[in-house]
Design a protein around this nucleic acid. Structure first.
Lengths: 225, 225
DNA sequence: CTTGACAAAGAACGTTTGTTCTGATATGAT
DNA sequence: ATCATATCAGAACAAACGTTCTTTGTCAAG
């Protein structure tokens, strides 16, 4: 039995902890173990009264819930260390790339090669937030936001963000050129200050009418390997 | 029947789509519907041959998987719009902070204030990898790796990494001082080249005996919102 | 109207599952 | 050694489950 990566709550017996561990790691949609399977998994046999007592113990201590009258219906509520357990994931559509010089693709655009892709995240990572979309960063033009080529940026779509939020914005320059960036957003009356995440770099100021906000950056994910 | 928030794949019949919709939204760890429940949910009755045909259709089209010989064992593979669907998550223990000047905490250390924490990630994000642990970055000393204060670094524990991998390493200086960094790792005979992720910064060379590898960085996560 | 094709529902059957009762084994106190 | 207690395992039973066969109903073509 390998060491667990966390401390066990002290109200669990050895067998209860093993059963809970097994349930937590094996239970998924489409795979709900029966009592005999639990019994075998923790080194016991059969499906006799000992399993009934073991599961009742876990129920009374608040670790699992049994659906009465259903087979294979055991829901884990808390982990063996007592912390809440959930299995919630959300799918975030990958709407396209973010490139410094090009406009952002819109959701549901017909000719978007990314339209079919989506990123699966745990709900714990994005909170209960709605209106999320993902962008793949192309090029190293946003390196001052500590975001590099290939990184994923999860954005909550909103037209106005709070001061200090990291925002995906489009800046229209004096000569009409346009650029997307990721910056900390501060607005003082009609002047917007865009502050790079890299503390070694200075801010950029411009008039609010020249800044279009796509949304607030919720998460940056860099997959390396 | 309310409108679905996406377009249905055109290889699904009306009933197949309804059944898949029900499976996708009801299936969770601890709740796996039986065939009769599916039948009732889509407005039919009983558990006769029509349900067998319906499920076989979904299997043949690649939308679900049935575990042979198990009851209530239907895994959704694709959503009704054809996009991939999974619910797999893994828990990665957060073993502590990574600070430039301090040694890395070890897993299961008794006085570790992070010992109870863990990060839930989707399996798609880390592949099928094992021996993962998470570190919280403290301070901005690793900004040349595009990693800032508060970021989460998911590491696969290994004592040797391949050339080019982003690695968590400990460098022992000439005067005995030690430092943790995140760098791209290259080894040429006994000389190790540590290359910052930021292309604007130059490499660092040192003897292999002065570099201790903790593992390979698999994922960097920055939560902002 | 008749026929054939198809889908849904019901019946029959063997297996699985959960529950409960009972027996076997181990442990500890006296 | 004896007894009480606790725990695991097996047997018995009823309900649930999946499979297969059969029946019923619907619809379109001839």
């Amino acid at each position: 039995m390998p060491a667990l990566p966390y401390n066990l709550a002290d109200d669990l017996t050895e067998l209860e902890a093993r059963a809970l561990e097994y349930l937590m790691h094996s239970s998924r949609p489409g795979f709900c173990p029966s009592r005999e399977e639990i019994s075998r998994a923790i080194g016991l046999g059969g499906r006799g009264y000992h399993i009934v007592r073991l599961l009742n113990g876990l129920v009374e201590k608040g670790y699992v819930r049994l659906e009465p009258g259903r087979s294979r219906a055991i829901t884990v509520l808390r982990r063996p260390d007592g912390r809440r357990f959930s299995f919630d994931t959300v799918w975030v559509p990958l709407v396209g790339q973010i490139v410094a010089g090009k406009p952002l693709p819109s959701v549901g655009q017909a000719d978007n090669p990314f339209a079919d892709e989506a990123i699966e995240l745990t709900r714990g990572m994005v909170g209960g937030q709605d209106d999320l979309f993902a962008l793949r960063v192309a090029g190293d033009s946003m390196i001052d936001a500590l975001v590099n080529d290939g990184d994923l940026v999860i954005v909550r779509a909103m037209s106005e963000v709070a001061n200090g939020d990291m925002a995906v914005v489009r800046v229209i320059g004096e000569e009409g050129q346009e650029e997307n960036t990721l910056k900390h957003f501060f607005r003082h009356d009609d002047i917007v200050r865009l502050q790079p995440a890299n503390p070694n770099m200075g801010p950029f100021f411009c008039h609010a009418s020249r800044v279009h906000v796509y949304g607030k950056v919720v998460l940056v994910i860099r997959q390396l390997g």
